[in-house]
Protein backbone atom coordinates (compact mmCIF):
# COMPACT_ATOMS: atom_id res chain seq x y z
CA UNK A 1 0.00 0.00 0.00
CA UNK A 2 2.59 2.52 1.13
CA UNK A 3 5.04 1.27 -1.49
CA UNK A 4 2.46 1.81 -4.23
CA UNK A 5 1.88 5.32 -2.93
CA UNK A 6 5.62 6.04 -3.08
CA UNK A 7 5.88 4.74 -6.66
CA UNK A 8 2.93 6.88 -7.72
CA UNK A 9 4.39 10.01 -6.17
CA UNK A 10 7.79 9.34 -7.73
CA UNK A 11 6.17 8.92 -11.14
CA UNK A 12 4.32 12.19 -10.62
CA UNK A 13 7.56 14.08 -10.14
CA UNK A 14 8.94 12.96 -13.52
CA UNK A 15 7.03 15.59 -15.56
CA UNK A 16 8.32 18.25 -13.17
CA UNK A 17 11.89 17.16 -13.74
CA UNK A 18 11.38 17.06 -17.52
CA UNK A 19 10.04 20.61 -17.24
CA UNK A 20 13.09 21.73 -15.29
CA UNK A 21 15.52 20.29 -17.85
CA UNK A 22 13.54 21.92 -20.67
CA UNK A 23 13.52 25.29 -18.90
CA UNK A 24 17.27 25.08 -18.40
CA UNK A 25 17.64 24.52 -22.15
CA UNK A 26 15.39 27.47 -22.98
CA UNK A 27 17.39 29.59 -20.56
CA UNK A 28 20.42 28.99 -22.78
CA UNK A 29 18.46 30.12 -25.82
CA UNK A 30 17.03 33.23 -24.15
CA UNK A 31 20.18 34.50 -22.51
CA UNK A 32 21.55 37.58 -24.33
CA UNK A 33 24.80 37.24 -26.23
CA UNK A 34 26.27 34.64 -28.53
CA UNK A 35 27.04 31.34 -26.80
CA UNK A 36 29.85 30.74 -29.28
CA UNK A 37 31.51 33.97 -28.20
CA UNK A 38 30.97 33.01 -24.56
CA UNK A 39 32.38 29.54 -25.20
CA UNK A 40 35.62 31.17 -26.40
CA UNK A 41 35.80 32.84 -23.02
CA UNK A 42 35.22 36.31 -24.47
CA UNK A 43 32.70 38.92 -23.38
CA UNK A 44 30.34 40.68 -25.77
CA UNK A 45 32.89 43.32 -26.77
CA UNK A 46 35.37 40.61 -27.57
CA UNK A 47 33.12 39.24 -30.29
CA UNK A 48 34.63 41.60 -32.90
CA UNK A 49 38.14 40.36 -32.19
CA UNK A 50 37.53 36.81 -33.48
CA UNK A 51 37.16 35.89 -37.09
CA UNK A 52 33.86 34.77 -38.54
CA UNK A 53 35.41 31.38 -39.43
CA UNK A 54 36.55 30.84 -35.89
CA UNK A 55 33.02 31.53 -34.61
CA UNK A 56 31.54 29.15 -37.18
CA UNK A 57 33.96 26.47 -36.11
CA UNK A 58 32.92 26.84 -32.45
CA UNK A 59 29.23 26.87 -33.42
CA UNK A 60 29.60 23.59 -35.27
CA UNK A 61 31.61 22.16 -32.41
CA UNK A 62 28.87 23.13 -29.92
CA UNK A 63 26.14 21.96 -32.28
CA UNK A 64 24.65 25.43 -32.46
CA UNK A 65 24.27 25.17 -36.25
CA UNK A 66 21.73 22.38 -35.90
CA UNK A 67 17.96 23.01 -35.67
CA UNK A 68 16.78 24.01 -32.16
CA UNK A 69 14.71 20.84 -31.74
CA UNK A 70 17.73 18.67 -32.50
CA UNK A 71 19.80 20.68 -30.02
CA UNK A 72 17.05 20.19 -27.44
CA UNK A 73 16.86 16.42 -27.99
CA UNK A 74 20.59 16.09 -27.72
CA UNK A 75 20.71 18.26 -24.55
CA UNK A 76 17.93 16.20 -23.06
CA UNK A 77 19.56 12.89 -23.96
CA UNK A 78 22.89 14.00 -22.54
CA UNK A 79 21.25 15.31 -19.38
CA UNK A 80 19.50 11.97 -18.88
CA UNK A 81 22.91 10.30 -18.99
CA UNK A 82 24.28 12.78 -16.49
CA UNK A 83 26.22 14.78 -19.06
CA UNK A 84 25.53 18.50 -18.68
CA UNK A 85 28.32 19.67 -20.95
CA UNK A 86 31.64 21.29 -20.18
CA UNK A 87 32.56 24.55 -18.55
CA UNK A 88 33.72 27.07 -21.14
CA UNK A 89 36.19 28.47 -18.64
CA UNK A 90 38.23 25.44 -17.68
CA UNK A 91 36.74 22.70 -19.91
CA UNK A 92 35.83 20.67 -16.82
CA UNK A 93 32.73 18.49 -16.89
CA UNK A 94 29.78 20.41 -15.44
CA UNK A 95 28.55 17.24 -13.75
CA UNK A 96 31.87 16.85 -11.97
CA UNK A 97 31.83 20.48 -10.85
CA UNK A 98 28.32 20.09 -9.52
CA UNK A 99 29.04 16.80 -7.80
CA UNK A 100 31.90 18.48 -6.01
CA UNK A 101 29.84 21.50 -4.93
CA UNK A 102 26.50 19.81 -4.20
CA UNK A 103 27.42 17.92 -1.00
CA UNK A 104 28.78 21.12 0.56
CA UNK A 105 25.57 22.99 -0.12
CA UNK A 106 23.40 20.08 1.01
CA UNK A 107 25.38 19.78 4.21
CA UNK A 108 24.85 23.47 4.93
CA UNK A 109 21.17 23.33 4.02
CA UNK A 110 20.40 20.19 6.01
CA UNK A 111 22.19 21.56 9.07
CA UNK A 112 20.29 24.79 8.68
CA UNK A 113 16.83 23.31 8.18
CA UNK A 114 17.27 20.82 11.06
CA UNK A 115 18.37 23.60 13.37
CA UNK A 116 15.53 25.83 12.20
CA UNK A 117 12.95 23.04 12.59
CA UNK A 118 14.17 22.08 16.04
CA UNK A 119 14.23 25.64 17.33
CA UNK A 120 11.09 26.68 15.45
CA UNK A 121 8.90 23.80 16.61
CA UNK A 122 10.12 24.05 20.21
CA UNK A 123 9.54 27.77 20.30
CA UNK A 124 6.12 27.44 18.65
CA UNK A 125 4.95 24.75 21.07
CA UNK A 126 6.32 26.70 24.01
CA UNK A 127 4.48 29.77 22.81
CA UNK A 128 1.22 27.87 22.32
CA UNK A 129 1.41 26.36 25.80
CA UNK A 130 1.86 29.82 27.33
CA UNK A 131 -0.74 31.46 25.16
CA UNK A 132 -1.49 35.01 26.18
CA UNK A 133 1.12 35.07 28.92
CA UNK A 134 4.28 37.15 28.83
CA UNK A 135 6.39 34.15 27.76
CA UNK A 136 4.20 33.85 24.66
CA UNK A 137 4.53 37.56 24.00
CA UNK A 138 8.33 37.43 24.21
CA UNK A 139 8.45 34.34 21.98
CA UNK A 140 6.23 35.99 19.39
CA UNK A 141 8.32 39.14 19.50
CA UNK A 142 11.41 37.02 18.82
CA UNK A 143 9.70 35.42 15.81
CA UNK A 144 8.70 38.80 14.41
CA UNK A 145 12.29 40.02 14.70
CA UNK A 146 13.42 36.71 13.16
CA UNK A 147 11.12 36.98 10.18
CA UNK A 148 12.11 40.58 9.57
CA UNK A 149 15.88 40.17 9.76
CA UNK A 150 17.55 39.89 6.33
CA UNK A 151 19.96 36.91 6.35
CA UNK A 152 22.62 38.84 4.45
CA UNK A 153 22.66 41.64 7.02
CA UNK A 154 22.57 39.15 9.89
CA UNK A 155 25.56 37.35 8.38
CA UNK A 156 27.57 40.58 8.33
CA UNK A 157 26.67 41.35 11.94
CA UNK A 158 27.56 37.82 13.05
CA UNK A 159 30.89 37.97 11.25
CA UNK A 160 31.65 41.31 12.84
CA UNK A 161 30.76 40.22 16.36
CA UNK A 162 31.66 36.54 16.59
CA UNK A 163 34.46 36.24 14.05
CA UNK A 164 36.09 39.65 13.92
CA UNK A 165 35.65 40.92 17.49
CA UNK A 166 35.32 37.77 19.60
CA UNK A 167 37.29 35.51 17.28
CA UNK A 168 35.11 32.51 18.23
CA UNK A 169 34.45 31.24 14.72
CA UNK A 170 36.32 31.46 11.44
CA UNK A 171 35.47 34.47 9.34
CA UNK A 172 35.19 32.36 6.22
CA UNK A 173 36.25 29.11 4.67
CA UNK A 174 34.99 25.59 4.18
CA UNK A 175 34.21 22.77 6.58
CA UNK A 176 37.20 20.95 5.11
CA UNK A 177 39.48 23.75 6.31
CA UNK A 178 37.98 24.56 9.72
CA UNK A 179 35.74 21.65 10.69
CA UNK A 180 32.20 22.19 12.00
CA UNK A 181 32.97 25.64 13.39
CA UNK A 182 32.89 26.88 9.79
CA UNK A 183 29.20 26.01 9.68
CA UNK A 184 28.07 27.90 12.77
CA UNK A 185 27.86 31.44 11.45
CA UNK A 186 26.48 30.61 7.97
CA UNK A 187 23.88 28.32 9.53
CA UNK A 188 22.87 30.91 12.11
CA UNK A 189 22.52 33.57 9.41
CA UNK A 190 20.13 31.63 7.22
CA UNK A 191 18.38 29.57 9.92
CA UNK A 192 16.81 32.51 11.73
CA UNK A 193 14.16 33.37 9.17
CA UNK A 194 12.91 29.81 8.57
CA UNK A 195 13.05 29.11 12.32
CA UNK A 196 10.83 32.12 12.98
CA UNK A 197 8.35 31.10 10.27
CA UNK A 198 8.29 27.51 11.52
CA UNK A 199 7.71 28.80 15.06
CA UNK A 200 4.75 30.90 13.97
CA UNK A 201 3.16 28.02 12.11
CA UNK A 202 3.84 25.60 14.97
CA UNK A 203 2.24 27.96 17.44
CA UNK A 204 -0.98 28.49 15.51
CA UNK A 205 -1.27 24.86 14.47
CA UNK A 206 -0.64 23.66 18.01
CA UNK A 207 -3.20 26.09 19.43
CA UNK A 208 -5.78 24.80 17.01
CA UNK A 209 -5.07 21.16 17.86
CA UNK A 210 -5.02 21.80 21.61
CA UNK A 211 -8.57 23.12 21.44
CA UNK A 212 -9.84 19.99 19.72
CA UNK A 213 -12.05 17.37 21.35
CA UNK A 214 -9.45 14.63 21.09
CA UNK A 215 -7.15 16.51 23.47
CA UNK A 216 -9.97 16.58 26.03
CA UNK A 217 -10.49 12.86 25.43
CA UNK A 218 -6.80 12.24 26.06
CA UNK A 219 -7.01 14.26 29.27
CA UNK A 220 -10.15 12.35 30.32
CA UNK A 221 -8.16 9.12 30.07
CA UNK A 222 -5.90 10.41 32.82
CA UNK A 223 -2.82 10.93 30.66
CA UNK A 224 -0.13 13.32 31.85
CA UNK A 225 0.28 16.78 30.43
CA UNK A 226 3.38 16.01 28.36
CA UNK A 227 2.00 12.74 27.04
CA UNK A 228 -1.02 14.68 25.82
CA UNK A 229 1.11 17.40 24.24
CA UNK A 230 3.75 15.20 22.64
CA UNK A 231 1.74 12.11 21.67
CA UNK A 232 -1.64 13.61 20.85
CA UNK A 233 -1.02 17.31 20.26
CA UNK A 234 2.23 17.64 18.35
CA UNK A 235 1.76 14.91 15.71
CA UNK A 236 -1.62 16.38 14.82
CA UNK A 237 -0.13 19.85 14.58
CA UNK A 238 2.76 18.77 12.37
CA UNK A 239 1.27 18.66 8.87
CA UNK A 240 1.17 22.41 8.18
CA UNK A 241 4.54 22.75 9.90
CA UNK A 242 6.08 20.21 7.52
CA UNK A 243 4.68 22.18 4.61
CA UNK A 244 6.49 25.26 5.88
CA UNK A 245 9.69 23.30 6.51
CA UNK A 246 9.65 21.91 2.96
CA UNK A 247 8.98 25.31 1.50
CA UNK A 248 11.69 26.92 3.60
CA UNK A 249 14.18 24.25 2.61
CA UNK A 250 13.56 25.02 -1.04
CA UNK A 251 13.80 28.73 -0.27
CA UNK A 252 17.10 28.25 1.51
CA UNK A 253 18.74 27.16 -1.72
CA UNK A 254 18.36 30.72 -2.89
CA UNK A 255 19.61 32.10 0.42
CA UNK A 256 22.60 29.78 0.34
CA UNK A 257 23.96 31.48 -2.79
CA UNK A 258 24.62 34.76 -1.04
CA UNK A 259 25.79 33.12 2.17
CA UNK A 260 28.26 30.81 0.43
CA UNK A 261 29.78 33.72 -1.40
CA UNK A 262 29.87 35.83 1.74
CA UNK A 263 31.55 33.12 3.81
CA UNK A 264 33.74 31.88 0.96
CA UNK A 265 32.34 28.38 1.18
CA UNK A 266 32.58 26.08 -1.82
CA UNK A 267 29.11 25.06 -2.95
CA UNK A 268 26.48 25.43 -5.62
CA UNK A 269 26.01 29.10 -4.74
CA UNK A 270 29.67 29.98 -5.21
CA UNK A 271 29.77 27.87 -8.37
CA UNK A 272 26.75 29.67 -9.78
CA UNK A 273 27.95 33.17 -8.97
CA UNK A 274 31.35 32.50 -10.56
CA UNK A 275 29.68 31.00 -13.63
CA UNK A 276 27.49 34.08 -13.99
CA UNK A 277 30.48 36.42 -13.72
CA UNK A 278 32.36 34.38 -16.30
CA UNK A 279 29.41 33.94 -18.62
CA UNK A 280 29.82 30.17 -18.28
CA UNK A 281 26.46 29.15 -19.70
CA UNK A 282 26.77 25.37 -19.31
CA UNK A 283 27.56 25.64 -15.63
CA UNK A 284 24.62 28.01 -15.08
CA UNK A 285 22.31 25.55 -16.85
CA UNK A 286 23.71 22.68 -14.84
CA UNK A 287 23.11 24.48 -11.53
CA UNK A 288 19.57 25.38 -12.62
CA UNK A 289 18.87 21.72 -13.38
CA UNK A 290 20.27 20.43 -10.13
CA UNK A 291 18.57 23.07 -7.98
CA UNK A 292 15.29 22.41 -9.79
CA UNK A 293 15.54 18.67 -9.23
CA UNK A 294 16.34 19.19 -5.56
CA UNK A 295 13.20 21.36 -5.34
CA UNK A 296 11.10 18.61 -6.91
CA UNK A 297 12.58 15.96 -4.63
CA UNK A 298 11.94 18.13 -1.58
CA UNK A 299 8.28 18.34 -2.51
CA UNK A 300 8.24 14.60 -2.97
CA UNK A 301 9.81 14.08 0.44
CA UNK A 302 7.23 16.40 2.05
CA UNK A 303 4.37 14.49 0.43
CA UNK A 304 5.76 11.18 1.61
CA UNK A 305 6.27 12.58 5.09
CA UNK A 306 2.59 13.61 5.24
CA UNK A 307 1.52 10.07 4.55
CA UNK A 308 3.92 8.67 7.13
CA UNK A 309 2.40 10.94 9.78
CA UNK A 310 -1.24 10.84 8.75
CA UNK A 311 -2.90 7.52 7.89
CA UNK A 312 -5.77 9.42 6.24
CA UNK A 313 -3.46 10.52 3.43
CA UNK A 314 -3.07 7.55 1.14
CA UNK A 315 -3.32 6.78 -2.56
Amino acid sequence: MFFKFVIRRVLFSIPTIVGIVTLAFLLGKLIPGDPAVAALGLDLDGASTVSQEELERVRTELGLDRPVIVQYMSWFGDALQGDLGRSSVNRESVTALILRAFPNTMFLLLTTISTAALIGISLGVFSALHRGKSADLVARLVTIVGVSTPPFWLALVLILVFAFNLNLFPMNGSVAEHGWTALVLPTASIALQPAALIARMSRSSMLEVLSQDMIRTAAAKGLGRWTIILRHGLPNALSPVITVIGFQFANLMGGAVAIEVLFGMPGLGSLLINAIFENDLKVIQGVVVIVGITFALTNLAVDLLYSVIDPRIKL
Binding site: D213, T217, G222, N236, D310
Partner: peptide, 24 residues
Protein backbone atom coordinates in the same frame (compact mmCIF):
# COMPACT_ATOMS: atom_id res chain seq x y z
CA UNK B 1 -7.22 13.72 39.58
CA UNK B 2 -5.21 12.10 36.76
CA UNK B 3 -5.37 8.79 38.60
CA UNK B 4 -9.14 9.16 38.84
CA UNK B 5 -9.70 10.23 35.23
CA UNK B 6 -10.48 7.32 32.96
CA UNK B 7 -9.94 4.96 35.85
CA UNK B 8 -12.55 5.56 38.57
CA UNK B 9 -14.58 8.18 36.74
CA UNK B 10 -14.68 8.12 32.95
CA UNK B 11 -16.32 10.29 30.32
CA UNK B 12 -17.95 9.76 26.96
CA UNK B 13 -18.24 12.84 24.79
CA UNK B 14 -20.66 14.05 22.20
CA UNK B 15 -18.79 14.07 18.91
CA UNK B 16 -17.47 10.64 17.99
CA UNK B 17 -15.99 12.14 14.83
CA UNK B 18 -13.59 14.38 16.70
CA UNK B 19 -13.04 12.75 20.08
CA UNK B 20 -10.59 10.17 18.77
CA UNK B 21 -7.04 10.91 17.65
CA UNK B 22 -7.00 10.46 13.85
CA UNK B 23 -3.30 9.55 13.75
CA UNK B 24 -3.40 6.69 16.24
Amino acid sequence: IRDIRGNEIAMVFQEPMTTLNPLM
